[in-house]
Design a protein around this nucleic acid. Structure first.
Lengths: 349, 349
DNA sequence: TCCTAAAATGTAAACGTTTAGATTTTCTTA
DNA sequence: TAAGAAAATCTAAACGTTTACATTTTAGGA
C-alpha cells in the first residue's frame, strides 16, 4: 500500500492509537516526545497523507474559501485574486477560484458545488446583483463577501471602490479642461459599477450646468468589443463629443482601438479618461488618464472581512467598505481651450 | 434543521431507504416512477444538498482537477485557465486554480493540499522544471499534465507550443528584413520556454551566418521589470542592436516601456518582435509584431489529455504535444534597408 | 512504599454517503 | 391459484478521520 497509508497504518507502525496520531498530526500536544517522534517517523516511512474528506466529515470546517469572478480574462480579477490568495495563505486558508463568464446559471452551479464541498466562505463578484440565486448559500449560513458589485436581496458584506467619486472626478477634470461635449461608455446598468459610474458622470455634468445629451451615452457591457462599438457610434455623430469617459478597462481598450482605427486624434480631437488602469495606458501617445483602483488591497480586505465572519459567527450587521480610487492624470485629456480664454470661464454652479 | 438535511432525512420524508435515495440522486435507475417523485419532492422540501466529503470517502473520485499556475497576473494563464474550465465544465468536472508566484515551496504546499482534497488530476505550469518535488503526486498515482513548461524527473504528458520554431521564425523575419545586430531578452534558462526560445534565436542566427554576440543577450526572468532593464542595458551599448526579440509578454511590456522612456525610436532605430501577443501590441505606433499562441486551445487540450488519463488508467507512454505558434507581422519590425539594396542581399547559408 | 493527581494514551462513536448482497414485492406464465 | 423470475427496495458495512470520555501510566509527596 505504497503511498496510500491511512491513520490506522501509521498508528500500527508507531505502536499507538489513531487518537494519538491525530493529536500529533494536528499539533495538539499532550503527547510524549519519544512517542511523537515514533509517530512522525512512521508518517515519513509510510508516506502518509491525511484525507481531507474524512476530516471534513468530522470537523466540518474545510479551511477553504471559494472565490467567484465573472471574467477571469479581465486583469482586474486576477489582481484581486492575488490579494485574496496571499492573505488566505497567511491565515492557513486555501482559496479556490471559479469563473462564471457573466452567466448567472453557471454561477448557481458553481455556488452549489462550493456548498457541496463545504467551503467555509465565499467571495463573489456576482453575475446577477439581484442575488436571489444566493438563497442556498444563505440558507446554509455560509459567510459571504461581495467585491466590486453589490447584492440586493441579502445583507452581504461588500467591498467596493467609490465609483461615483471616481467617475465624478474624472468627468470633472474633463469639464475643468474646458470640455462640454463629454460622452460616456457605460457598463451594464444592472451592476453597481455600471450604475454608479454613470451616476458620477451625470452628477459632474449637473454640477457644472452641463446638459445631459442622450447622444453621448453609449450602453456597453464591460467587454472590449462594446467599447469599440461605442467609439464608432460616437464618432458617427454629426456633433461629435470632444471627450470620452470609459467605464471599465476592457471597454477602454476597445474604445482606444477604435479611435485609432478611425484616425480620431486622441488628445486633440478627442480627449479620454478611463476607469481602471490598463497596461496600454502608458504606451499610447498621449498616455491615458485613468481612475485607478487598489486591486490587491481590495482582495486583501475582502478576505479579511470574510475571515472575521467565519471566525465569529455573530450576527453583526452588514458592512460596506468603499475604498477611494485614485486619479492618474496623464495626457489623454488635454485642455480644450488655453487657460483664461472666454470660453474656458464656465463655472461650477 | 433548516437547510442542513442529510440523506437520512430525505429517506424518512419519502418513506424509503437511503440506498433508494442515493439511486435517485445519482440517476442510477431501478426506482419506480412514483417512488422517485416522492424522493425528489422530499429533496426539494428539505433543501437537501449532498455532502461531497461523504461521497468522496466512499467513491474516491471527486470530479475535481487542480490547476497550478506560476503567475496569475500574467494574462497567458487566465486565458489557458478559461480553456481548461470550459472543457472541464462540459465533462462534469470542477477546476480549482491556485497560483505559486514562481515559488517551488508554495507549489509543494499547493500540491499537498490538492492531494489531501483528492483531486482526480493536476494541470501544472511548474515553478521548478526539475520536478523532484512532484514525488508525492507521482506516488499517489494522480494523473498530471504539464503546460508550457516540461517536467524532467517524471514522465508527464506535456502541452507546449513549438518555442524553437516561433522564436526562430521571428528572428528569421528580422534577419530577412536586413537586421544583423539582433538582441534577445531571454526568459529563465531553467524553463522550457526560456531555454527553447533562446535556442530558436541562436539557430536562426547560425543559419544566416550571423555571429552570436554576447552583448546582445540579456537574461530576464519573464517579469516586466526585467524587460525594462534589458532594454536599458541594450541601449547603453556603444554598438546598439538594431532589433530586439523579447521572450515573453510581460518582458515585452517592460522593454517597450523602456524604449519609450529612452526615446529609442521603435520601428526606426530599433525593430522589435515579441513572444506572445499583448493588448498593447496593436496600440503602439508602430504596432508590435509578435509570436502568438493559441492559449484557449492549449487549455482545452491540456484538460482533454488529463481527462483521458483519469478515465483510462492505462500505463500509456508519455505524450507531448507541440502546438504551432503563429507569426503576426505588424509594423515594429521594418526593413533595415530598402529591398534590392546590396546590403539586403545576405542569404541563408 | 503507597496514594493521589496529573499526564498520556486508548476506545469507540460519529460524520454522510455509496453499494454489495439480502430481502421483499410484483409480474408473468402454466 | 401457485410458482418462479425479475424488479424494486432494504440492510448494513465501509470509507478515514476527530474527539469525548475512559483507562492506564507516571510522578511527586507524605
Amino acid at each position: 500500500m505504497e503511498g496510500k497509508a491511512n491513520i490506522q497504518d501509521v498508528a500500527k507502525r508507531a505502536n499507538v492509537s489513531i487518537a494519538t496520531v491525530s493529536r500529533v498530526i494536528n499539533n495538539q500536544g499532550g503527547v510524549r516526545k519519544q512517542t511523537e517522534e515514533r509517530i512522525l517517523k512512521a508518517i515519513q516511512e509510510l508516506g502518509y497523507i491525511r484525507n481531507a474528506a474524512a476530516r471534513t466529515m468530522k470537523s466540518k470546517d474545510t479551511k477553504t474559501i471559494g472565490v467567484i469572478v465573472p471574467d477571469i480574462n479581465n486583469p482586474f480579477f486576477p489582481s484581486v485574486m492575488a490579494g485574496i490568495e496571499q492573505k488566505a495563505r497567511e491565515t492557513g486558508y486555501f482559496a479556490i477560484l471559479s469563473s462564471t463568464n457573466e452567466s448567472p446559471v453557471v454561477e448557481q452551479e458553481i455556488l452549489k458545488n462550493f456548498i457541496e464541498r463545504g467551503v467555509d466562505g465565499v467571495i463573489i463578484t456576482t453575475a446577477n446583483e439581484n442575488g436571489d440565486h444566493l438563497k442556498q448559500v444563505h440558507e446554509q449560513g455560509i459567510p459571504m463577501v461581495a467585491v466590486d458589485r453589490s447584492i440586493q436581496y441579502y445583507d452581504v458584506d461588500t467591498v467596493l471602490v467609490d465609483n461615483v467619486k471616481g467617475s465624478y472626478q474624472a468627468v470633472q477634470h474633463m469639464i475643468l479642461q474646458g470640455h462640454e461635449k463629454i460622452a460616456i461608455i457605460c457598463g451594464p446598468q444592472n451592476t453597481t459599477p455600471g450604475r454608479e459610474r454613470f451616476i458620477g458622470y451625470k452628477k459632474a455634468l449637473e454640477d457644472y450646468n452641463l446638459k445631459l445629451d442622450e447622444r453621448y451615452i453609449f450602453q456597453g457591457d464591460f467587454g472590449e468589443r462594446s467599447g469599440y462599438q461605442g467609439a464608432h457610434q460616437l464618432y458617427s455623430l454629426d456633433d461629435r463629443p470632444t471627450a470620452i469617459f470609459s467605464s471599465n478597462n476592457l471597454m477602454t481598450i476597445g474604445c482606444v482601438k477604435a479611435v485609432g482605427d478611425l484616425d480620431w486624434k486622441l488628445g486633440e480631437e478627442i480627449s479620454f479618461f478611463g476607469f481602471d488602469d490598463v497596461d496600454i495606458a502608458t504606451f499610447l501617445n498621449p498616455k491615458l488618464s485613468v481612475v485607478s483602483r487598489p486591486m490587491h488591497a481590495l482582495g486583501e480586505l475582502a478576505f479579511q472581512l470574510l475571515h472575521e465572519r467565519i471566525q465569529f459567527k455573530d450576527p453583526v450587521p452588514k458592512r460596506e467598505y468603499k475604498l477611494s480610487p485614485e486619479l492618474i492624470i496623464r495626457e489623454s485629456c488635454r485642455l480644450r481651450y488655453p487657460k483664461n480664454s472666454p470660453d474656458g470661464q464656465s463655472l461650477k454652479k
